[in-house]
């Protein structure tokens, strides 16, 4: 299988090299999104992610297919975590491998940028005294 699409409780960032490694790939590019401690100078205790899983997997699969159409890639990985995540935890991994570096760099950026726009996953920022659904309000 050339694409790996998963929604999991905890992301294992150690596996992604093996998953993207391919005899025809001279370049592997990976983006990992993680929990940042501060948002607009406010301390974040944790993030909580929830998803509409059946639809999210479909949308992630479409993203992988679009990346394969647009660039000559050998492998694509898209994984997202759900549940409560602490500061420095990995929450999303996208990656691609290709013969040369430019394709996997471009594909990687497309994958994360488009994932943020289309995949039905929601993130709540938990602060000390309140919680906020990110992007819900203008």
């Amino acid at each position: 299988m050339n694409k790996i699409i998963e929604i999991v409780q905890d992301l294992d960032t150690n596996k992604v090299y093996q998953e993207l490694s391919h005899p025809n790939s001279g370049g592997i590019c990976v983006f990992v999104g993680s929990v940042r401690e501060f948002t607009n100078n406010e301390q974040v205790m944790a993030l909580e992610f929830e998803t509409y899983e059946s639809m999210a997997l479909k949308e992630m699969d479409k993203l992988a297919d679009k990346a394969f159409e647009q660039w000559k890639l050998n492998k694509v990985v898209i994984k997202h975590a759900v549940g409560k995540k602490e500061v420095q935890d990995a929450v999303v991994i996208v990656g691609a491998s290709s013969a040369h570096r430019s394709e996997c760099f471009e594909a990687c950026r497309f994958l994360i940028d488009t994932l943020k726009e289309t995949v039905p996953i929601w993130k709540k920022e938990l602060f000390k005294n309140k919680s906020v659904w990110v992007s819900a309000h203008p």
Partner: peptide, 10 residues
């Protein structure tokens, strides 16, 4: 049928 508010994954 699902109601999809603004998504915020990643």
């Amino acid at each position: 049928v699902a109601i999809i508010p603004p998504v915020s994954g990643g």
